[in-house]
Design a protein around this nucleic acid. Sequence first.
DNA 1: TAATAATATTGTATATAATACATTAACTAT
DNA 2: ATAGTTAATGTATTATATACAATATTATTA
Lengths: 237, 237
Amino acid sequence: MSFNPHVSIDCVVFGFDGENLKVLLNERVIAEQNQNYNDKKLPGSLILDNEDLDSAASRVLSELTGLKNIYMSQFHSFGKPDRINNPRDILWLEKTMNLKIGRIVTIGYVALIKIDRKIQQQSDVTTAKWYGIDEVSKMNLAFDHNEIIHSGLEYIRGKLDNDMQLLFELLPGKFSISQLRTLHDTIYNKQSDVRNFQKKMSQIQYIIALDEKQQGVKHRAARLYKFDKMLYKKMKN
Amino acid sequence: MSFNPHVSIDCVVFGFDGENLKVLLNERVIAEQNQNYNDKKLPGSLILDNEDLDSAASRVLSELTGLKNIYMSQFHSFGKPDRINNPRDILWLEKTMNLKIGRIVTIGYVALIKIDRKIQQQSDVTTAKWYGIDEVSKMNLAFDHNEIIHSGLEYIRGKLDNDMQLLFELLPGKFSISQLRTLHDTIYNKQSDVRNFQKKMSQIQYIIALDEKQQGVKHRAARLYKFDKMLYKKMKN
DNA sequence: TAATAATATTGTATATAATACATTAACTAT
DNA sequence: ATAGTTAATGTATTATATACAATATTATTA
């Protein structure tokens, strides 16, 4: 099946390393004629002619990062007529897609994943890597990808207000309450009170205390907890 | 400028008549060959080649309903490969657009407006009209427009949680608290306590009591209120 | 003009959730 | 043993949400 050269998908995948929110970017190397660039872009590509948007998003993510079975949400479409006007973007598209490219409307998807998931090298693409969002906001990304990332983050903030579960997608299976708090405060860019946060979390039934502590830290080890997905789902109904 | 035959806009415009939530639909008449249909569709059309998505949404809404300066939000894109497979949809598109149509991805926009706004007859289109959403859910609309309306309503519900202002877009400039409550309960499909609702609303500073009452009702007339948009905006910051 | 019908308006007590605030406990490294 | 580092915890106060029913106002009708 062939590509639909008018519609693409871009995936904004967030992770959390314990300190900072990060986003997955592919490296883009252009070495042609007098052009010689090396910059970054979101994992994204054209949809196929016979492909549903959600399926396209899964496929594209899998092809460019090796990630499979990731829950993604469509959050916004971007279609400025001039969003593809930088010569290096045009050159790169024509080389990569082997197509004369006109206007492309791209559909943004977001995902939140655990940062230790394996990102696989694909045959013909440079591996995707994690970059801190602060760092990224200073880079000059391909196309309108800076704007897309910003918009994706805003979307996630809004989502979290209604759905705590999303936080847990970013944390390891076992986590301490202060990790959870750091993540929460990072995303909302504020500082919550330690005691009140702890209290609130201890009231939530689907956050389960384990009989385990952190290992290898050079101070008092924190208790670990896990998130009970099944219980969470039950309680939402 | 010419149409981009790959991407369209569909507008889901909600109104409230005091009892029911309504949505604007255009009538679609097909009288060709052996085909003879008369059904309904959302106001929607292809984007132009040089046109931003938001601008396209404004233009399309204006062309099909006469409505101008309406605040619209993009809420979701729809792109099932087979979303245009019904023969009458294909026939209608080819007649109307005068183009061979392949796959079209459509971008959904929502708006909330006061139901007494003037809907103008356009030259070559039948006038858009209001239909109750319950009624609409039993109709068989063009394309995937049933799905788009449903999705738009869900979007609005989510939005309202964070942004009360949206309710006021649907109400007349002067309204009673019980109108406001009826609207609220209609959208959320529940029944709030009269006293608690009244109390809550009277604490909100940007809901201003007027020295006016309802006219021409055959029972005790309710006090009227207005929404102070400026104050609301100030308080959000 | 008195009675009726219809909707508007209002308060209090109780439960739940949000906030402000500082000390002690546990473990590691020296 | 001591110093350094982060974890863990409780109480009082305020704000918000909920449950619940009687009276007021106006138009219509008898």
